[in-house]
Design a protein around this nucleic acid. Structure first.
Length: 460
DNA sequence: GGAACTCGCCAC
DNA sequence: AAACGTGGCGAGTTCC
């Protein structure tokens, strides 16, 4: 078992390595930011005009006049739930009626789509403005901290380089085009794929999970997708069927990962029904909408197996969940129970990397912290070694996002750095930590020379 | 005029 | 029994 002293040494070396990362800084194209802000502002203006002329906007201005602010959730709450008598869909953390994206869509009020569009581009605007604000002579210097997070992960600030938009393709493009390699260089991103799932397996040693992780031809998310959506058998491989990727993603992001984090079937069923099947709308189960698979909407696949309501789907997901934890991954499930019981007895637990957690923690925290923390420590170890070995070279590690490192690479050094990263991740990490019993894999992506962070291609 | 709070939302 | 884990940040708002 790794000792607390080793944990301390990892933090010490990590802090030193990250100080070099901070010193290197990130190249940012402020001319691009300023130009792009013109277009973003134009989008914002157009959406604001549309909102003003919608029923929602009219009601808003009628009550607040020139004091109306589309960014004021307090005003919005009043308009939606008092003046327009919309049905609150859920409460926020503090107990008031929520005005988040899901809640706005659920109201069905005419005009919320313009407000959501405003929020989307406001986010992009905030990112570009912060880049301009933090840039000095074409570089900015985000902080990477190791002492702020309960799980012993890192955080980033001023600006936060760990939450630059990615999933929304359009917004991602606008924001990440601003981040560049140094002149003549390229950006390289080294990413540990599925690291949290692999690290979790090092704790629970579930044979079914280990088999999935060792057999690259198996596909856990694909198997779960078939079960979740009751997909029929086909003569052709699933991956050749239209919509397979979407269905698999729905299963992964709507069921498997939420279950790993501690969510449960009622939420999963509802989210999948809303986000992927576009169900239920106004309480009516409409199987003809949403993502489709083999030319048929997912709702129809479900209907053909007698799932004709949200209740029926929820019951089905409950059965899938039982099968998931009580049969498929029962050893994993037993580990969660034992791990939590041990915490309840002792009031503390220790991560595989030697970090100790104590205090009043909820069950989900107790189960998640050791995985989240140790997974990050694998990245931190890799980053420390990379920073060490890049001394005397031209390339610099310039950032880190929990399971990936970003490097500003001088082209002649590219192949050497990729080989270095492969060696560290797949040989040196498991040699340092014998408890790593699952093979670790990295994915490498690169930009063009003088490219940007929005246009990354697989490399290595 | 600033501290502290809530809310929404981006990342992993 | 409980019910998605960890952060940072901007805007609005309230309080002192």
């Amino acid at each position: 078992m790794t000792s607390q002293l080793e944990a301390y040494r990892l933090l010490q070396a990590g802090a030193e390595a990250l100080s070099f990362v901070e010193e290197a800084g990130v190249c940012v194209d402020t001319d691009y930011c300023r130009e792009e802000l013109v277009g973003v502002d134009r989008r914002l203006f157009r959406s604001e005009v549309r909102l003003k002329h919608s029923p929602l906007g009219k009601a808003w201005i009628q009550r607040y006049g020139s004091a109306w602010r589309h960014s004021s959730v307090a005003q919005l709450r009043h308009i939606l739930y008092q003046d327009m008598h919309a049905q609150p869909f859920k409460a926020s953390e503090g107990g008031s009626e929520s005005t988040d994206e899901e809640s706005l869509r659920q109201t069905g009020v005419d005009g919320v789509e313009h407000l959501l569009e405003l929020r989307r581009w406001k986010k992009a605007r905030d990112v570009l403005v912060s880049f301009v604000r933090y840039a000095t002579q074409g570089r900015m210097y985000p902080s990477f901290l190791l002492h702020t997070v309960a799980t012993y992960r890192s955080s980033s600030a001023d600006p936060n380089l760990q939450n630059v938009p990615h999933r929304d393709k359009e917004v991602m493009d606008v924001c990440r085009r601003a981040i560049k390699p140094s002149p003549g260089n390229l950006l390289l991103e080294i990413d540990f794929s599925g690291i949290e799932v692999a690290i979790a397996a090092c704790y629970h040693q579930d044979p079914t999970m280990i088999a999935y992780l060792n057999d690259t031809s198996s596909d856990m998310h694909g198997d779960m997708a078939k079960e979740l959506f009751l997909l029929p058998r086909f003569n052709t491989p699933y991956k050749e069927i239209e919509g397979w990727y979407t269905v698999r993603q729905a299963s992964k992001n709507g069921f498997v990962f939420p279950e790993f984090y501690g969510d449960y079937y009622i939420n999963c069923a509802f989210n999948i029904a809303c986000s992927w099947c576009k169900l239920p709308q106004n309480g009516i189960w409409r199987p003809d909408q949403g993502a489709s698979f083999a030319g048929k909407p997912l709702g129809e696949h479900l209907l053909s197996r007698d799932i004709d309501s949200l209740d029926a789907f929820t019951n089905h997901v409950q059965r899938v969940e039982r099968n998931f934890w009580e049969r498929r991954f029962k050893v994993y499930n037993q580990w969660r129970k034992d791990w939590y019981a041990s915490y309840q007895r002792t009031g503390e637990f220790e991560m595989k990397t030697g970090f100790r957690c104590s205090g009043v923690l909820a069950r989900n925290q107790v189960v998640n912290y050791p995985v989240q923390g140790a997974a990050f420590h694998v990245l931190l170890f890799t980053l420390i070694k990379l920073v060490e070995r890049l001394r005397g070279m031209q390339s610099r590690v310039i950032g880190e996002i929990h399971d990936s490192a970003i490097i500003d690479v001088s082209p002649p050094e590219l192949d050497r750095i990729i080989a270095m990263a492969q060696e560290i991740a797949t040989v040196e990490v498991p040699r340092e930590w014998r408890w790593i019993t699952i093979p670790l894999r990295i994915e490498v992506a690169r930009s063009a020379i003088d490219g940007n962070w929005a246009e990354m291609e697989a490399a290595g």
